[in-house]
Design a protein around this nucleic acid. Sequence first.
DNA 1: CGGTCATTTCGATATTCATTGAAATATGAA
DNA 2: TTCATATTTCAATGAATATCGAAATGACCG
Lengths: 114, 114
Amino acid sequence: MKKTDAVAALAALAQDNRLDVFRLLVEAGPQGMPAGAVATALDLAPNTLTFHFDRLRTAGLVTVRRDGRSMIYAAQFETMNSLLGYLTDNCCGGAPCAPAVECKPARKRTKIPA
Amino acid sequence: MKKTDAVAALAALAQDNRLDVFRLLVEAGPQGMPAGAVATALDLAPNTLTFHFDRLRTAGLVTVRRDGRSMIYAAQFETMNSLLGYLTDNCCGGAPCAPAVECKPARKRTKIPA
DNA sequence: CGGTCATTTCGATATTCATTGAAATATGAA
DNA sequence: TTCATATTTCAATGAATATCGAAATGACCG
């Protein structure tokens, strides 16, 4: 992971509502959940939520796919794992530290269809 | 870790220079390094660096101790680990994911003396 | 004490960011 | 086509942020 990407991901997560959104999606797992459900769960205005989704998506932390009139957002676990790895990179000069986390959902689904 | 703390830590890391500073300190390990050395290594103005150190310190990501006229900054690994844990918390509903990283430096030194 | 080094504080500035309200787009149903 | 639902776009506003220059503090040395 490049520094630019790490900063983008961190900035995307460094905001109350967005952190809530992301953690909700992490909890929801790879099948994700519709924007409206997130809006309801977190009590956010739909346009505000779109703004935050955009930032998360630009940072590569979530993906979208359309299902009817709903937009289904899902966490992108690979990016999250890369970020965690980046932060602990070469910890303590490389000597005595346990390395990277991994959150690896069992069933995978990386679709971005119409 | 509380949400407030997580946001603070993420915000502290979500900036080019600060991310560099933090990773430099992570690499330096628990004994830390003087502010001046960081300034030299990253080519930052000393006042700018103070600003960034302050944000990292407020977020609990670094500690300071004085050594003569130098200020020695060191990464606070516990906070980093808590943050990593917070991000992966209850991943995928708790089911099939490998849990939290840990960066545990061998020799510990949590001093904040005069 | 006077001088110097290391770091911090202060004030100003330009930029970025989150939120809101109103209007637009897209899908699906009658 | 007309209506309703789901989400996005746009423009405006107030708040927070990073950086800079100049000056101040604190610590050590003669």
